[in-house]
Amino acid sequence: MALSIEDIKKIAHLARIEVSEGDAAATLSKLTGILGLIEQMQAVDTTGIVPMSHSQDLSQRLRDDVVTKVNLREEFQKNAPALGNGSSEPAVADGLYLVPKVIE
């Protein structure tokens, strides 16, 4: 599968990573190399082999449905990111984390 520079830009945008024009070309060749490796692996006959979804051959441990967490809002909100408007204060108000306005 051949990737284009447009694919690189789209993937970068979806991941919210800024990739400069110069870096895009280098990233393209690296990702193309990775896809080449995957193509090699796809040539192996895997009939009858259950796809691996985890590197450890274990099953998920379950937790009892009991409240164990206490309210640490004040502690957590001391570490909230600042607004980016020059202020270094955590962006919180009325117990809410503040972010730039989101409108759907």
């Binding site: 449905d65 009991v66 164990t68 967490k69 309210n71 957590f76 117990g95």
Partner: peptide
């Protein structure tokens, strides 16, 4: 209808003060 969240022991009770049931 569980008492706690799917991946942590934080309460799921409705109507609590903002972020008081938001654990790490």
């Amino acid at each position: 209808q569980t008492k706690t969240k799917i991946f942590s022991g934080a309460s799921t009770a409705f109507g609590a003060e903002p972020n008081t049931q938001a654990c790490e």
